[in-house]
Design a protein around this nucleic acid. Structure first.
Lengths: 216, 216
DNA sequence: AAACAATAAAGAAATTTTTCTTTATTGAAA
DNA sequence: TTTCAATAAAGAAAAATTTCTTTATTGTTT
């Protein structure tokens, strides 16, 4: 079976995944007043090879200076832009349970270009509440609000068994991307972007390493 | 700069990362009473190539039957064991803020072999509370409890600026693996396993795809 | 009973990603 | 001023991962 593969971009996904960490780090340096940072310094922080950093940064417009490194301020600027963190995108969050409200509490998201404008649930005890400045509505109000609000992303934090149902609603209501925090794999039309984020994969990786250690 | 690379295992990490999803899915099938599952079916669910599934499963001990597939019950068993989800490991969680308590509320973790036995914080308003059955202690009590409890993993959900300090404590107190949910990159001795889990990487990937679409 | 179709498995090929090597540049030290 | 060392950048090589191809098997249909 062959999978349809939209050549997502010229930039390797591993590179994209490392960049937010570079950015976090360089922001700290900026705060400290450091003016230049070398690939070696970033690599040391990240525990990766320095040529990896150079190569990753070569996908952006920044150019480093031999023997000096990259200008910190410019690098923050360039990375933020490159990653799309400077233009704010609006999102809805559906499922205001424990994970959902943790995300609502995470003010870091807005720093990375994501603005959660409203949350939805079906649980009467959460509806009407205001979580860290975000109003929780009944899910039936989703459609009306979505049209008013020009929201392109839906954050899916409902129980796994409801994931597909809610995803279908999201698609019907015009969402472009779904950030799926449930372990369920949802089916959506090709043009909809889905990003699955499940922490259990990470747990598996840890256990695998722990186990390997035990065997050695 | 060359990085020390402990050849973590013979099994590719991407494979390890996909396996928990296979497991989740096959568990659902088991509940439904389905007796066999083909690589094609799993691949279809996961939206990946079916040979990928076959190859991934070949790292385990299971053997499929031509024209039939894999026995569901056996597959659940084999995958759970392979991933180390059947032996419960004990963990401490440090930082009982919004993300921390979301993790405490996630009963799925115990299904995947992780048992959070205690939580720690410095905030007087959370100390002494019981979150979903887990007691929250002052961080000073960490050492005593760690020795009593044979805990091998520390879950790090403190603010980024405290990550290194707390990681140092964890190491000093004999933890073997750190699951780092902060954006900070921590420095620990080589033998300590660190797994960084930051959701912002996923956000970057989504934005990258959204952007690519806009450009097309 | 024979032909067919769906599948697992193993290995080869292709692709992607990382690491290595080389070169040129430039600030700092001698 | 000259030499040295640290660095970025580009390209080559290596390694890892995914996809493709082939083969053998076996349930189902004719």
């Amino acid at each position: 079976m062959v999978q349809s593969s939209r050549k997502s971009s010229a930039v390797p996904e591993p590179t994209i995944r490392r960049m937010p960490s570079y950015l976090s780090y360089v922001k700290v340096l900026k705060k400290k007043g450091q003016q230049f940072v070398s690939s070696t310094q970033i690599a040391n922080y990240m525990n990766i090879d320095s040529t990896q950093v150079t190569k990753d940064l070569s996908y952006t417009s920044i150019v480093g200076k031999t023997r000096v490194g990259y200008e910190v301020e410019a690098l923050v600027e360039v990375l933020s832009n490159f990653l799309g963190f400077t233009v704010m995108d609006d999102a809805f969050l559906i499922g205001a349970g424990s994970l959902g409200s943790a995300l609502l509490h995470d003010n870091g998201l807005s720093q990375f270009g994501l603005n959660i404008v409203a949350a939805f649930d079906v649980d009467p005890s959460t509806i009407g509440k205001n979580v860290n400045g975000v109003e929780v509505y009944h899910i039936d109000q989703f459609r009306d609000l979505a049209q008013q609000m020009n929201v392109i992303m839906g954050i899916l934090t409902v129980p796994a068994e409801n994931a597909q149902t809610v995803a279908d609603l999201m698609v019907a209501w015009g969402i472009k991307a779904i950030w799926n925090f449930t372990p369920a794999r949802i089916k959506v039309p090709d043009e909809i972007i889905v990003q699955n984020t499940t922490i259990y994969s990470n747990l598996a990786v840890i256990f695998n390493k722990l186990h390997a250690d035990r065997k050695e």
